[in-house]
């Protein structure tokens, strides 16, 4: 669909939140009891945090929970009884989430719906609407300005203006949201696309060359680059980059419980862990740098080769939270041939 533009006054934004709570399970940025920023379910508009800062965990768990029951089982009388859990009962509205978190869903949808359809994921995904909030400034570690990821896949993006939001509707799902609360939205005036462009320039989030997508062909020739071992060996395999990542979607299937009863569940897993590919007689990624290399190449070579977009929205969480300060952006630039300078500083001291 062609994009549509609306004005949402600050007052009506509060009205939208209150009314949407009756129709949706509304998730927004808020502070938990300890004052930490999280994606949660604030009960009033005052509790919604309108800040650029990202919660440490992305919003992916609302479509791909960290732990998800696939089957519950019971044994008794020589028989096994198994049942699958109910699909989610309510529509979900991601209200004021970061654009990089909202954009991730459209990217990972592709793996969950190629060939076999991943019913549990898609059941949640089909009931999700995103109203993302554009950042007013680039944060320390993020680099969404270097990735032309499919912002198009985000249902609606709100750009904060003086006393109102300029809302860009990009999908049918976003249009349905506006239609549902039509009296809260006014037609945008002026030239909204130009207004957005200058907003992005000012925020520093406008796209800047060279885009990291262009690293793909360079990476494809750098699989056996000798510096992987030096630059990626600092990885300790803790997996925090993958858990905080909005696009990391690899999972494990495990049973929890015992003989009499329990559940089979899907849990997040991480490719940087040593057991990820370990088999009884064979371990293809037998060194830590190979496991880190897998993560980087999956995001910037394998996934785009297979599905189109890179598996990254530039949120920068993996840089922020890495205990050994591995910087994926610098490594992609280096191995992808976008920069001659080796990633510098103590961050990559071997």
């Amino acid at each position: 669909m062609d994009a549509e533009y609306y004005k949402l006054s600050a007052e009506n934004a509060a009205g939208l939140f209150e009314r949407a709570r009756a129709d949706y399970d509304v998730v927004a940025k808020t502070r938990d009891a300890n004052g930490n920023l999280v994606y949660g379910r604030p009960v009033s508009f005052e509790d919604v945090a309108f800040v650029d800062e990202q919660p440490p965990m992305s919003a992916k768990a609302f479509a791909l929970p960290q732990n998800e029951t696939l089957v519950r089982y019971e044994r008794g009388g020589g028989e096994i009884r198994a049942e699958t859990p109910e699909a989610p009962a309510r529509d979900l509205l991601l209200f004021g989430v970061n654009v990089c978190d909202a954009a991730a869903f459209d990217i990972i949808d592709r793996v969950f719906q190629w060939d076999y359809l991943d019913d549990p994921y898609l059941a949640r995904r089909e009931r999700t609407t995103q109203l993302a909030l554009a950042c007013t400034a680039l944060q320390r570690d993020c680099f969404c300005n270097r990735i032309s990821y499919a912002e198009d896949g985000v249902d609606a993006v709100a750009y904060p203006r003086e006393g109102h939001y300029l809302v860009k509707i990009q999908t049918d799902n976003g249009r349905r949201l506006v239609e549902r609360y039509r009296n809260l939205f006014a037609e945008a005036d002026g030239d909204p696309e130009t207004e957005i462009t200058s907003f992005l320039e000012k925020a520093g989030t406008a796209k800047r060359e060279p885009l990291l997508e262009t690293a793909q062909s360079g990476l494809a020739g750098a699989f056996e680059h000798a510096d992987w071992e030096i630059l990626a060996s600092t990885c300790i395999g803790c997996g925090i980059c993958t858990y905080t990542c909005p696009t990391c979607h690899c999972f494990d299937i495990q049973d929890e419980g015992g003989y009499v009863g329990g559940r089979r569940l899907r849990t997040w897993d991480h490719c940087t862990g040593r057991t990820f590919t370990a088999m009884p007689a064979h371990q293809p990624r037998d060194r830590q740098y190979k496991r880190y290399r897998q993560r980087l190449l999956h995001k910037f070579w394998y996934y785009p080769e297979r599905f189109g977009p890179v598996l990254c929205t530039g949120c920068g969480r993996c840089i922020t939270h890495c205990p050994v300060k591995i910087n994926i952006k610098e490594l992609v630039e280096y191995f992808g041939g976008l920069s001659d300078a080796p990633p510098g500083g103590r961050r990559h001291a071997p």
């Binding site: 969950f112 299937i253 297979r306």
Partner: peptide, 15 residues
Amino acid sequence: MKCGLGKCGRCNIGS
């Protein structure tokens, strides 16, 4: 492998 269905991201060699 875990899923066997091209989802869980475990069995890849390249793409």
